[in-house]
Simulated scan of single mutants.
Amino acid sequence: MSLYHGSLYWPTTISDRPVYPKLDKEVSCDVLIIGAGMSGALLTYKLAKEPLDVILVDKNCVGNGSSSANTGLLQYSNDKMLHSFAESIGEKDAVRFYQLCLNGMKELKKIATSLQDDIQFIDRQSLYYASTESDIVSLQREFEILKKYNFPVEFLEEEMLYKLYGLNKHGAIRTMGDAEVNPLKLVLSLVKEASKKSNVQVFENTEVTEPQYKDGYWLFHNEDAIIRAKHVVYATGYQLDNFTMEMPTELNRTFAIITNPISSFRNWKDRCLIWETKRPYFYMRTIVDGRIIAGGLDEETIESPRDPRILQIYADRLLARIKEHFPYLQLKAEYVYGATFGESKDGIPFIGEHPNKKNLYYCLGFGGNGTVYSAFGSTIIKDLIINGNHPDADLVRLNR
């Protein structure tokens, strides 16, 4: 399955991409991480600081999977609102989950400041507006519960929303503590920094097979190499195996465009991240070079269309949505693509140890907040490997 079709923007921003060798020998390690996308990169970066021998492998190249199609909106709020989570899993666990997301945002900010490369990480506010007048009730409920638990949030009435943003909407909540990033630069920088450590090895174009457990090690064979690992972490995103295919998940497709550069955003206050209550929702943000990236039009089909003419139809729809908000902008879609993404049935990612296989873990950031999930998920996996526990591991466990 191809994870995306169309023209991607983020690879065009990379001028000096690190290259890592293919594994062609026998190696041993404390931790083997399979998948060099966002989850794998964050976990490798964190484990590089520990007294552990770490190997990161990817069957393609670092960042070549979903990270290249990631739109780089980083928010603690979720596709599923906090008050909806409270109804389905209980208020205590719902708040715990949202606090994990807020902690993930804080982790990402801390990591961004520590990296040597400019990953285009910028603090932003998010504007979450009511798509219809009837959605105001739900937004107000969301504001009240977020405020109750001290999440950084404000409510904007219709008049204030128009005054500040020039948007004719019925109301919105504004969240603070969010950000934007170039996701591919983030992944590449994380792996590059980690690979400088003597305890970390990175291999590209290295596919692993189903492992066997022998003498305290997980053993992987392929035609060129053998890997022995005490702990194994699958950070393979939407590439599911026999075990993860049984999880309550859905694979769908979404679409995104990147416009031509814009010289001025006179009504786009603080260049905030913008999204809406409608489902499937539309969202958009700006990029440092003045472009707009917008996405949505989600469909219950896995693979995106390959025909450029069909992709252009989706691009025109997304352009029209941007123009609804900012009609004065002169826009064209210079990049357009469709991508596969995954969601869990309950809205919570799958992170933790295999229920029947010791020292084998999964870090799967299913959902619209995949990068944030990867941030706190990699910490949970790190703590499970080193300490054997994490206080929130039960919330995101694989067999819930």
Rank of each mutant, 00 (worst) to 15 (best):
M1I: 12
Y4I: 08
Y9T: 04
C29K: 01
C29E: 00
V31E: 02
I33W: 01
I34F: 04
I34E: 00
G40L: 13
L42K: 04
L47H: 09
L47G: 02
A48F: 10
P51S: 15
V54E: 01
G65V: 12
T71I: 14
T71Y: 11
Y76L: 07
A86S: 15
E87G: 03
E87V: 04
V95W: 03
R96Q: 15
G104F: 11
K106G: 02
E107F: 06
A112E: 05
T113A: 14
I122W: 08
I136T: 12
L139E: 01
E142W: 09
F143W: 08
Y149L: 06
Y149A: 07
E159V: 13
M160L: 15
G171Y: 09
G171I: 08
A172M: 08
M176S: 15
D178F: 06
L186A: 08
V187P: 00
L188G: 02
L190D: 02
L190F: 05
V208G: 00
Y213N: 09
K214W: 06
H221S: 11
I227R: 04
I227M: 03
H231G: 04
H231W: 02
Y234Q: 04
L240R: 02
L240F: 00
I262F: 01
S263I: 09
W268R: 13
K269C: 02
C272G: 06
C272T: 08
T286R: 03
I287L: 15
I293L: 11
G296K: 12
L297N: 01
L297T: 00
D307A: 13
D307N: 15
Q312H: 15
D316A: 15
H325S: 14
Q330G: 06
L331R: 05
G338Y: 13
G338D: 10
G352R: 07
H354N: 05
N356A: 13
G368E: 09
N369G: 11
S378H: 06
T379Y: 03
I380W: 05
I381G: 08
H390N: 14
D394K: 10
L395Y: 03
L398E: 01
